[in-house]
Amino acid sequence: MLTLEKLTVQLGENRYCYNLCAGVDRVSAILGKSGSGKSTMLNVIAGFLRSTNGELQWNGQSLLGLPANQRPVTTLFQQHNLFSHLSVEQNIGLGINPQLKLTNEDHSSINRTLDEVGLHGYAKKNASTLSGGEQQRVALARCLLRKQPVLLLDEPFSALDESTRHEMIELTRNVIQEHSLCVVLVTHNSDDAHMLNAQLYELTEGELIKQN
């Protein structure tokens, strides 16, 4: 269970206060206009931004003291998830070991995960040669291999065309069930949320309001 208790962020003039309980049973989807503070919330959870007040816990343990790379969290961004000069395998491998020291076992688990996201045989390809949809699949594969219980989705489908988007959402839904992840999705498109069968929250004036 991921809990945000009056988690407060001050960004210049704007003040945001988040309250949320996100479980593993259902995706939590945060809807709101651009600039409403959706991405800010994910940045605080992931540790890219510091909160001024309140509490952030995973299974009862506070995350606030931990740096970004030690939190039980992994994020799929809208774009620029991959390093374009590296291969697919290397891009995913960085999620296992940031020095890219990979064992044979690591290589086979990379290949297994690539199969899972439908990119069999893509390991040696250069990231810059992939389409937008394929890049997001690789990024998702890396998220899975990091084996973190919390998956943050920061508009991951917004840069994709219509049919690719549907495929990617489908894949994400299967993967979430398979790995029983706690997922927080941020989007401006309520269709995404509906297709993931998510619990909806509306972010207005810096506060989250649960929708039915």
């Binding site: 940045n43 992931a46 970004a68 790379n69 992994t74 994020t75 390093f83 960085l94 940031p98």
Partner: peptide, 16 residues
Amino acid sequence: RVIQSLGIIGWSRWRL
């Protein structure tokens, strides 16, 4: 943010 969350730092960051 990707670099930060993957914890790629120091010499590895330069090299990779």
